[in-house]
């Protein structure tokens, strides 16, 4: 039976500002999941804290709306235990690149079977406009009143450096590209990372919708081959008048996902609602 995007609707007040990029991202995600034939109960959204993290409150699915920056460890544990769930991790740039930076490194290294969407508005939205790790140099925010002294972090080269199994960037203003990338990411076993550029009309007056729109271009359309890691680095270094989007890197050969590495060939969930006592007689008797 076909799944309708509206099955993902939750009849609740949505708390984003008018014109927020999150609307387009959520709408595209619903369409993508429905298009893949996934029903809400087959999906687990592990969401961080922030406006982006509110996806864990605004969509119907299994949701673990957790602590600021801690979504990837939670997704790791849940996915290890129940591999029948399609696990998505969703959070902001502050959530993922500041508070959760260490977890990002290790999630990529483990190759957990999770699609990780970072809504990158280059600002802290929920807490009203402080600088984030991806904020533009010189931008004035309540916490950088003299202008941000630092260069923004480049999440794409970071993830390429970790040789994450799927590394992409998209833009909330290009729903078609976003959907195509999400579709691939969600179907791909292993860690799929997507940095999604997003306007924040309330707090980021520098990197606006128009600013992004004028700069983004699709690297795959321009001929980039995602199996070429070296070339991916070269392309990913670009930032300024032109901003590359698309799939930078994708493992040419499938590599083992984390669950296989931990549990061997075990295909079943580690547990269901019933647990049988484990027979530990043999282990105990080693102490005799």
């Amino acid at each position: 039976m076909a799944v309708e995007p509206k099955e993902y609707n939750l009849d609740r007040e949505i708390t984003w500002c008018p014109g927020c990029g999150n609307f387009a991202i959520m709408d595209t995600l619903k369409r993508t999941l429905a298009g893949l034939g996934l029903s809400p109960h087959q999906v687990l959204i592990v969401a961080g804290i922030g406006q982006a993290g509110k996806m864990g409150q605004h969509m119907k699915a299994n949701t673990l709306h957790v602590l600021h920056g801690r979504l990837l460890p939670v997704a790791t544990g849940a996915g290890l235990v129940n591999n029948r769930l399609k696990v998505l991790a969703i959070g902001g740039d502050g959530d993922g690149y500041a508070e959760g930076g260490n977890h990002l490194i290790h999630a990529a290294r483990r190759n957990i079977d999770v699609t990780y969407m970072v809504h990158n508005n280059m600002i802290y939205g929920l807490t009203k406009g402080q600088a984030s790790p991806t904020s533009t140099k010189s931008i004035k925010t309540p916490t950088t009143p003299q202008g941000n002294p630092l260069e923004g972090l480049n999440p794409i080269t970071l993830l390429l450096g970790l040789k994450a199994s799927f590394v992409a960037r998209s833009f909330a203003g290009d729903k078609e590209q976003l959907r195509a990338i999400l579709e691939k990411a969600i179907q791909k076993p292993g860690f799929a990372f997507i940095d999604i550029l997003q306007q924040c009309p309330s707090f980021n007056k520098v990197n606006t919708f128009k600013w992004f729109k004028e700069r983004v271009y699709d690297i795959n359309e321009a001929g980039h081959d995602p199996s070429d890691l070296k070339e991916a680095f070269r392309v990913a270094l670009e930032w300024g008048d032109r901003i590359p989007t698309g799939i930078f890197y994708e493992d040419p050969e499938p590599r083992p996902v984390f669950r296989e590495a931990v549990l061997g060939g075990e295909d079943k969930p580690v547990t269901t609602s019933e647990i049988n006592p484990l027979d530990i007689t043999e282990i105990m008797e080693e102490h005799l």
Partner: peptide, 17 residues
């Protein structure tokens, strides 16, 4: 930090963690 959050994820998916 990751350790306890992993266990929280696992417990909600049904494991004794």
């Amino acid at each position: 930090i990751a350790a306890i959050n992993m266990s929280i994820g696992a417990a909600n998916a049904g494991a004794r963690a």
